[in-house]
């Protein structure tokens, strides 16, 4: 039973409101990366996932997606009238994940290469979700980490792995859009 007076609870709710308004905008990166993952499945089905042509898909579109996400949140923050005050944190996470993905690509052997890359992305989402106290993104990050681990251990085909990831991200995007 809670004994906290409702006025203090109301203040707590009020203080969380601006952040929750910005969190609704997560539908965009979830949709974008969900579509990129499904696109990757198509690429992997056609070409060997470990050729340069296949790597180029994520090596080029991954950072561009991250950049587009940054621009999206910057613009939406202006429109919504909320500056969360932590751009440095997000830039640091973005750079760290880019370095992590590059290391996975160059140092980690098959069949763990792609699971390692997506494991890093999962960690990125987990970090953002925990810092922002946003259960949906925390869940996406944790689920990505688990699926990456299972995919590596089971030597799952990268195309199938990408389909699972893409569908999961699109479902999360729909949930993010519906939550009000």
């Amino acid at each position: 039973m809670s004994t906290t007076p409702s006025l203090v609870d109301d203040l707590e709710r009020l203080s969380n409101r601006p952040r929750s308004i910005v969190q609704r905008e997560y539908w965009f990166p979830l949709t974008l990366f969900g579509l990129l993952a499904l696109g990757a499945a198509g690429v992997f089905a056609r070409w060997d996932p470990y050729t340069t042509a296949s790597w180029a898909w994520w090596a080029i579109l991954g950072p561009l997606g991250g950049l587009a996400t940054g621009v999206w949140f910057a613009r939406r923050s202006e429109t919504l009238g909320v500056h969360d005050g932590r751009p440095g944190f997000y830039v640091a996470l973005y750079v760290a994940s880019a370095i992590g993905c590059s290391l996975c690509g160059s140092l980690v052997p098959e069949p763990w290469t792609y699971p390692c890359v997506f494991g890093v992305v999962g960690l990125l989402n987990l970090g953002i979700g925990l810092v922002d106290r946003y259960p949906l993104v925390t869940g996406v990050g944790a689920a990505t980490l688990v699926v990456s681990g299972v995919a590596g251990a089971a030597e799952l085909d990268p195309a199938a792995f990408s389909v699972v990831l893409g569908v999961a991200l699109l479902i999360a995007a729909v949930i993010a859009r519906l939550i009000r």
């Binding site: 203080s15 409101r17 601006p18 009238g81 909320v82 500056h83």
Partner: peptide
């Protein structure tokens, strides 16, 4: 005033109309 302080407590900046509407 208490509402303004609470709204601002977990973000960097809020725009005037955002606070007014909230």
């Amino acid at each position: 005033r208490l509402g303004v302080l609470a709204l601002l407590s977990k973000v960097g900046e809020l725009e005037f109309t955002r606070i007014r509407d909230d």
